Simulated scan of single mutants.
Amino acid sequence: MTSLWRKLLQLILRRPRPADGRIAVKGKVITLFENGKSVSRIALDDIRKIDAYKIDEWTTDLICFDIHTEQNGERAVHTLHEDLPGFNDLMESLKQLPGFDATWPEKVIQPPFDENRTVIFER
């Protein structure tokens, strides 16, 4: 591999990426897992805002959600992406939120490789 390609590959692999793991949805509770362990639980009622956007991964885009929560006075942001197992179940669950923007894909997906950050839910 040439030096230029090696450097390019290193830059690509160094890019920050949302955490990997899995998503489980049961009723109105979303559980996030990393390395097989539950790391966070989010009740739908604790969600204050959701941003949808894309990360340009050079040849493809990665759809991401920043889920802003407030639980017992503490605020947090959970970044989840479409490659996580359970993301489709998450989507179905989020549709229950009053005022959830079901047209978000039209706003985020095109044009390709632009972030297109869009608020899809806010209380």
Rank of each mutant, 00 (worst) to 15 (best):
R6S: 12
R6C: 15
K7C: 06
L8N: 11
L8S: 06
L9A: 06
Q10M: 11
L11G: 11
I12P: 01
L13I: 10
P16G: 13
P18T: 02
D20A: 09
G21D: 08
G21L: 08
R22C: 05
I23P: 00
I23N: 00
A24K: 10
G27V: 13
G27P: 08
V29M: 03
V29I: 12
I30L: 02
T31W: 06
T31R: 15
L32W: 03
F33T: 03
E34L: 05
N35L: 08
S38P: 12
S38G: 08
S38C: 12
S40R: 14
R41I: 01
I42C: 09
A43I: 00
D45Y: 05
D46M: 02
D46A: 04
D46S: 14
I47Y: 01
I47Q: 05
R48K: 11
K49W: 04
K49Y: 03
I50N: 00
A52M: 05
A52I: 06
A52V: 06
Y53K: 01
Y53Q: 02
K54C: 10
K54G: 03
I55C: 08
I55R: 09
D56G: 07
D56Y: 12
D56H: 09
E57W: 09
E57A: 11
T60W: 09
T60K: 09
D61Q: 00
D61H: 00
L62Q: 15
F65P: 00
F65I: 05
I67V: 08
I67R: 04
H68G: 04
H68R: 05
T69S: 06
E70R: 11
N72D: 13
G73R: 09
A76E: 07
A76S: 10
A76T: 07
H78I: 07
T79L: 15
L80A: 06
L80K: 02
H81F: 10
E82H: 10
D83S: 14
D83E: 15
D83I: 15
D83C: 13
L84H: 05
L84R: 03
P85D: 13
P85F: 10
F87G: 02
F87R: 11
F87D: 00
N88I: 15
D89R: 01
D89I: 00
L90N: 00
L90C: 07
E92C: 05
E92M: 03
S93E: 06
S93Q: 04
S93F: 04
K95I: 13
K95M: 13
Q96K: 11
Q96E: 14
L97N: 15
L97M: 04
L97R: 03
L97Y: 00
L97I: 07
P98D: 00
P98G: 04
G99L: 02
D101P: 04
A102I: 15
A102E: 09
T103C: 10
P105T: 01
E106T: 11
V108E: 05
V108P: 01
I109G: 07
Q110F: 13
Q110K: 12
P112V: 15
F113I: 06
F113T: 06
F113E: 10
D114Q: 12
E115T: 13
N116Y: 06
R117I: 14
T118I: 02
T118Q: 04
V119P: 01
V119Y: 07
I120R: 01
F121E: 03
R123Q: 09
R123A: 07
